[in-house]
Design a protein around this nucleic acid. Structure first.
Lengths: 224, 224
DNA sequence: AAGTATTTACTAGTATGCAAGTATGCATTA
DNA sequence: TAATGCATACTTGCATACTAGTAAATACTT
């Protein structure tokens, strides 16, 4: 596990991107102890850019600096995950209602195509691709109502949820999720805001179904 | 304009808090050029803690570092402000619906009291106090449904909106805002989720009424 | 042997030095 | 006069030295 640093560019952002990705993928599990010096030596840079990466990770809520003691990967905050889900449901519900009133045939066709791709991925048992396609599907809905900036905000909030997703990826019933995507698109196709919203809320409420079980079986990963 | 640095604590976070407050209050208007060295000399610390404060401000979207050129206070992003408002409306609407089903007499009394305090502030023509009370009112609603963490997230998003608020504070029709607060509480009093939600949406949709005018008269403060 | 002081090896926080890129004003040139 | 080259004074990015605080192992005392 080693990043490729391009020394013609600034190193600090590259260190940040590398560490952030590693945390979200679970390669650096909660509670892991990091050290500015150690990481710096590992990738061949001084403490300084590593330190700056740690500061940004702390601002993201992904790391925690204990002065004169060390820097630790933060445990997953259950309340932060639940908050992110609630916010996502509220916002995407509003967006989908707006979209139901203005969706045109071209968009519906595009969304049907997205769902077909998702089905292909699940047929190949390719969970990782599905996660990517799922993100793209929801993003596309936001872009279609001209609210790409809103999705960017949700993306940031989702970081805590994503950490969970990598832990629980196997237990998802992906086929069911795709069916829910189809229900959402049906709501758009019929220009029925209430239907689309109901489908979206049902969909997003299922995302954390297995949180209680996971947090019971792996308590060392979580804080309230 | 000078912060008081407590040298028994870490200085970097203190520098960050000071600069952030100055930006949100408009004391450092968009486009202002900062310098690590200059700020450091001004408050008697080295470049390092100032630099770390700049990094966090950049992560907040409040500053922008141009390598080898300087650090600048970011202009207010109109799309970010609009996104924050949309998200706030979606989330607070959901929260107020949940609250309408479970609000008890004690809470209603407390909210009535809050509104009374707001009226006192407007009677004294004390706009600054009203801004504080307004924040407390909305926060209280979130806390009452057990979603304080959600409000913390909204607080972060609101930073761009707050910069606007300090510019436009005088032009607000505060009396009208208080009336809308009362409508929201009436919805809760009658345990009528639809009524409460409608009042909340009406309320939050007015917050940016004067954005078009402000952005036309002060274009140097904004980017699309 | 148990408990207490001390040493030692770490940690992050801060200050400073150097390198490299940028902007600006001035001198030079056509 | 206008345009170009260049010296100079900035800027941030990174490396390094030093400080102070923490924790754990070790030595010492009772």
């Amino acid at each position: 596990m080693q990043p490729t640093i391009d020394f013609t560019l600034s190193t600090a952002p590259q260190v940040y991107d590398w560490l952030r990705d590693a945390i979200l993928r679970g390669a650096l599990p909660p509670g892991t102890r990091l050290s500015e010096t150690e990481i710096g030596q590992q990738i061949g840079v001084s403490r300084q850019p590593v330190r700056e990466a740690f500061i940004r990770l702390t601002a993201d809520g992904l790391a925690e600096v204990r002065p004169q003691r060390g820097t630790y990967i933060r445990r997953i905050s259950i309340s932060a995950v639940l908050s992110a889900r609630l916010i996502r449901e509220a916002v995407e519900s509003d967006l989908i209602r707006m979209l139901a009133e203005q969706a045109d045939d071209k968009l519906i066709t595009q969304l049907d195509q997205e769902i077909a791709e998702q089905s292909e991925a699940v047929a190949r048992d390719d969970a990782e691709t599905f996660v990517r396609l799922d993100d793209r599907f929801h993003r596309l809905l936001a872009v279609a109502v001209g609210q790409e900036a809103v999705w960017e905000v949700l993306e940031g909030l989702k970081s805590q949820m994503n950490r969970l997703r990598y832990i629980t990826a196997r237990t998802f019933d992906i086929q069911k999720l795709i069916g829910q995507h189809a229900e959402i698109v049906d709501g758009l196709r019929n220009h029925d805001p209430a239907l689309a919203e109901a489908a979206m809320r049902r969909h997003l409420r299922e995302l954390l179904n297995d949180l209680p079980e996971i947090s019971r079986s792996r308590p060392e990963l979580f804080i309230p």
